[in-house]
Design a protein around this nucleic acid. Structure first.
Lengths: 128, 128
DNA sequence: CAAACCGTATCACTCATATAATACACTTAG
DNA sequence: CTAAGTGTATTATATGAGTGATACGGTTTG
């Protein structure tokens, strides 16, 4: 069953989007098996200390993207085949990277500086 | 006088934060001179098609960070010395980069893959 | 079967964001 | 000097995000 222990909420944006992103990252990373069950809305809401409606909103969006399936009364489960997995991975990777590239270019950062900065911060993060 | 022509609003977050970031990026890039005047709240609001109060909120936050100065009746102006410029630059660069690194690591991306991806997307962006 | 759990839905409330319409005092330009 | 422009402030309204409480029907499990 999918695990939410590694999800820590912050103030970067709506909670339901953070939950949505967490599940997507799990799918993209391959740590979530196809057909794997998700913990119920109530369980997740209690674990994260948020309202069940907020979790429901994230789950509903996941279902609208075709990444999970829900049946009234039974637990929801993931339905992410290899194509969906690849699609989500590309979507998430490009999303952040393009935002960062846009910001860097606007600040006059060169490609070489950007690569060096990413390399430095990546290694710093490894040690932390 | 500071120019807002290159600021295009999107749905990524609050408008006042997008204005705040635009000015900060200008300061970090060095395209904004020390002592340079800012267009009035009313002018910017008309240009962007938003409410004057929204622009005022961004300007107020900039003043609280010590990046601009305002005097009743006269235009506000930038007061960003080299130290402030460096501080803002580091703040903005680290902000986006660390978010991307965190997301990538959670998806099982290696440092080499990350550097290659950034290099590829950067060049793609150059052509677009 | 029956209790517990689950997905789903609704209503009311708070808070932040953004808009709209003014108003007042000060500075600057004609 | 006068008028236009500016910073600042207030009040009201609308919307989305999030919470809280509750309810109903279907599924799972003991």
């Amino acid at each position: 069953m999918l695990n939410f222990d590694r999800l820590t909420l912050d103030e970067s944006g709506p909670i339901y989007l953070q939950i949505l992103r967490y599940v997507k990252q799990g799918i993209a990373a391959g740590t979530i098996e196809n057909g794997e069950e998700l913990p119920s809305r109530r369980v997740v809401s209690a674990l994260l200390g948020v309202n069940p409606n907020t979790v429901q909103k994230a789950y509903r969006l996941l279902e609208e993207e075709g990444l999970i399936q829900s049946h009234t009364g039974a637990k929801s489960c993931v339905v992410a085949d290899e194509a969906a997995r690849s699609r989500v991975r590309t979507q998430l990777l490009g999303q952040d990277a393009r935002a960062m590239i846009s910001a860097m270019k606007q600040m006059g950062v060169t490609r070489e500086e950007a690569l060096a900065l990413l390399d430095t911060l990546w290694k710093e993060d490894d040690q932390a």
